[in-house]
Computed example of a mutant assay.
Amino acid sequence: MPEPFSLSVIIPVWREAAGITETLRALQPIRGRAHEVIVVDAGSTDGTAELARPLCDRVVNSEKGRAAQMNAGAAVARGDLLLFLHADTRLPESALEHLADFAHSHRAWGRFNVRLSGQRPVFRVIAWFMNKRSRLTGICTGDQAMFVRRDVFEALAGFRPMPLMEDVEFSRRLCRMSRPFCIKEPVVTDSRRWQTHGVWRTIFLMWRLRWRYWRGESPESLAQIYRSDVRNASK
C-alpha cells in the first residue's frame, strides 16, 4: 500500500568521508520505498560529496554550519515530511512505520529516542537522561533525528542562522505549535565524540553550554567555548 506521506531525509555533512558510505547504505531501503535522501555538504575536502553522490538523491553545496546546511537541504526537498539526520546516526529499521503513525497524528513535529553505540554502561545512563529530559521539556537535540511537517517548517522559516543550539532554539518554537511526537524505538548515535573527548568532560561541557544558553548567552559566544574545549581535549 502507498504510504501516507513522502519523506525527505536531510543530512548535513562536513568531512565525513570515513563514515558517509555506511550511513547512506543504511538508508537505501528508505530510498527503495520512493523517499529521498539529500546530503548537504559544506565544502568538504576529503571526498565526502563524491562518496555520497551514488548513494543519495541529491548532493547540495552549502555554507558551513548545520542551521544553514539543513535549511539548504529543506529548500530543495520534495517530501511533505522533513527529517534531519546527523551523519553519525542510524535510523531504526521500522522508522517508516513509526513516521506513518506520525503522519496520521495531529502533531506538528517529533523526534526519536536516542541510544549511544558504545558498550560502556555509562552510555546507557547518558541516553536515559537525554530521552527523559526531552520528554519532560519537549526540547529535542540533533542526535534525536528531528522530523517536522514541511508546511510547519516553512511557516516558521526553518532554523535560525546560529553557530550552536539551532536545534534547541527550533524546538522551542515548535513546542508552541504542539508537543513533539515521540518515537520510543531509538536512533543509534556513534559514541565516538564522547570517547574521544572524555565522557564526563563532554557531559559537563554540554550541560554547561545549555545552561549558559538558557541564561541568555549568545550562541556565538557558546560556539567559541565549544571550539576551545574541543581543541584542549585533543591536545
Rank of each mutant, 00 (worst) to 15 (best):
M1E: 13
P2A: 15
P2H: 14
P2E: 14
S6F: 02
V9R: 06
R15V: 00
E16S: 05
A17H: 07
A18S: 12
A18L: 10
A18G: 11
A18I: 02
G19Y: 04
G19M: 06
I20G: 05
E22D: 14
T23M: 11
R25D: 01
L27M: 07
Q28R: 11
P29K: 09
I30T: 12
I30Y: 08
G32W: 05
H35T: 03
H35P: 01
E36H: 07
E36W: 07
V39C: 06
V40C: 04
V40T: 06
A42V: 06
A42C: 09
A42Q: 09
G47L: 09
T48N: 03
T48D: 05
E50G: 08
A52V: 06
D57F: 06
R58N: 00
V59R: 08
E63A: 13
K64T: 12
G65P: 09
R66Y: 12
A67N: 12
Q69F: 02
A72C: 03
A72L: 03
G73M: 05
V76C: 11
G79R: 10
L85M: 10
L85V: 07
H86N: 08
H86Q: 03
A87K: 05
D88H: 11
D88P: 02
L91V: 04
L91T: 05
E93Q: 13
S94N: 14
E97P: 00
H98E: 14
L99N: 01
A103G: 01
A103H: 04
S105H: 09
H106T: 11
R107P: 00
R107M: 11
R111M: 14
R111F: 13
R111K: 13
N113P: 01
R115I: 01
Q119V: 07
R120D: 15
R124P: 02
V125G: 01
I126M: 10
F129R: 13
F129A: 13
S134I: 06
L136V: 00
I139L: 15
C140G: 02
G142R: 10
G142C: 06
E154H: 04
A155F: 01
G158I: 06
F159C: 00
R160E: 07
P161C: 02
P161M: 04
L164T: 04
M165P: 03
D167I: 03
S171Q: 08
R172P: 00
L174R: 07
C175T: 08
R176C: 05
R176V: 03
R176W: 01
R176N: 11
S178Y: 05
S178T: 15
S178I: 05
R179E: 09
R179I: 00
P180D: 08
C182I: 15
E185G: 06
V187H: 00
T189R: 12
Q195A: 01
T196Y: 08
H197L: 10
H197D: 03
G198K: 09
V199M: 08
V199Q: 08
V199W: 11
R201F: 01
T202Q: 10
M206N: 11
R208H: 14
L209K: 07
R212Q: 14
R215P: 07
R215K: 13
S218C: 05
P219F: 02
E220P: 03
L222C: 09
Q224D: 12
Q224C: 07
Y226A: 07
Y226K: 10
V230C: 04
R231E: 15
R231D: 13
A233D: 03
S234G: 00
K235D: 06
